[in-house]
Simulated scan of single mutants.
Amino acid sequence: MVEYTSAPGDVEMGLEEKMVVLVEKKSSTEWIWKMFGALLLVALCFGGVLLFAWHWNGPETTTQPGQAEALIEEDSAEKTDLHYTLRRISSNAKAAIHLEGSYDEEDESSKDELEWKNGQGQAFAQGGFQLVDNQIVIPQTGLYFVYSQASFRASCSDGNGEGAGKRLTPLSHRIWRYSDSIGSKASLMSAVRSACQTPAPEDSHRDGQGWYNTIYLGAVFQLNKGDKLWTETNQLSELETDEGKTFFGVFAL
């Protein structure tokens, strides 16, 4: 009868083989869990991106054909507006004000100056700007773009006609500034233009016609909180105050 014996080395080899098998099973399990965790993380990230995109863009809305045409017409009308560019700039500005000029020579209660109006026509104020005593009050210290335009319709004639004396009187428009740091008013911008360079057509004054002139002022200034800005204009009776012709404004940069 043949007997089998196990040497110590065989026993050790058997143990090592068993240990190898156990290590392989453990490594395989960890790899599966790692893959599962990575896939779960990718799914969560993708879902987060979709949720952020939906929240940013908002839910999609459908528009009926009639509504689409109305929106297109409204957008086209806005872009043809005379003050579209100004509104687009001011919408991104920290603070802005835009005023429309008004002057009624026949109104006895009207002061002998160009009156600025807020809240009518294209006029508006935002970001802390105020119109006080016909002056713009600066809300905060910083850089500002200041602008103004005065439109005139000068009636000119030769000889002793009704508009003869106006040929010698120039048109002027000026922006003043008062600052507590200065302690007195100072001229911010000004311009002068000849009213009548050549005689107007015969009977132009009687027919309500005349020579048209426009003075535009605009520049960037460092202004302080509480500074006051106002205008001074001559030849008020020759001013054109229809909407969009004479205005005054400031916006922060």
Rank of each mutant, 00 (worst) to 15 (best):
G47P: 00
D242M: 06
F221C: 13
E3D: 05
Q235W: 04
P8F: 03
K117S: 07
L50P: 00
L39M: 07
V21M: 04
K94T: 15
D227Y: 05
G47H: 04
Y144P: 00
F129P: 02
S27M: 13
Q122R: 12
E12I: 15
I32H: 05
S28N: 09
T214V: 13
E162G: 00
S27Q: 14
G165S: 13
T141E: 13
F251H: 09
S109Y: 10
K117R: 15
A200K: 01
S28V: 07
N92R: 06
A43M: 13
D242L: 08
L239R: 02
F52S: 06
T241G: 02
D104N: 15
F145E: 05
G128R: 01
V23W: 05
S91C: 02
W211R: 02
W230F: 07
G159R: 06
C196S: 07
K79T: 11
G14L: 03
A38T: 15
L114Y: 06
F36H: 04
Y144C: 03
S172Y: 10
V220R: 14
R193T: 15
Y147Q: 13
R167D: 08
S190G: 13
F221S: 07
A125C: 07
D104E: 13
P59I: 06
F248P: 00
Q122G: 05
G66A: 14
A125F: 03
T233G: 01
S157C: 07
T5E: 11
D227G: 00
L51H: 08
K79W: 10
K18I: 03
F129G: 03
N118W: 05
V146K: 01
H83Y: 06
E238H: 13
T233A: 12
L44M: 09
A150T: 11
N57S: 06
I72V: 15
T169Y: 07
W56H: 11
D10G: 09
S181G: 05
Q149S: 08
K228H: 08
M189F: 09
A150C: 07
K25G: 04
H173P: 01
D112V: 09
G183Q: 10
G48K: 00
E74H: 09
L114V: 11
A219H: 14
F247S: 10
S76R: 14
L131S: 08
E105F: 08
E30R: 08
D133I: 02
L168T: 11
L82F: 14
P199V: 10
G163S: 12
G165H: 06
S157I: 02
S194I: 08
L253N: 15
D10N: 10
T29E: 04
E60A: 11
E113D: 11
W176Y: 11
G226W: 01
K79P: 02
T233E: 03
G9K: 05
Q67P: 00
Q130A: 15
I89G: 00
Q120S: 12
G244P: 02
P170C: 01
A96D: 01
T231G: 04
A252N: 06
F247Q: 01
C45F: 13
L51N: 07
M1Q: 07
G14E: 06
A195E: 02
F129N: 03
V192K: 09
G9Y: 02
S151G: 04
R193S: 13
D158T: 12
A7W: 05
S187G: 13
Y144L: 06
T80Y: 08
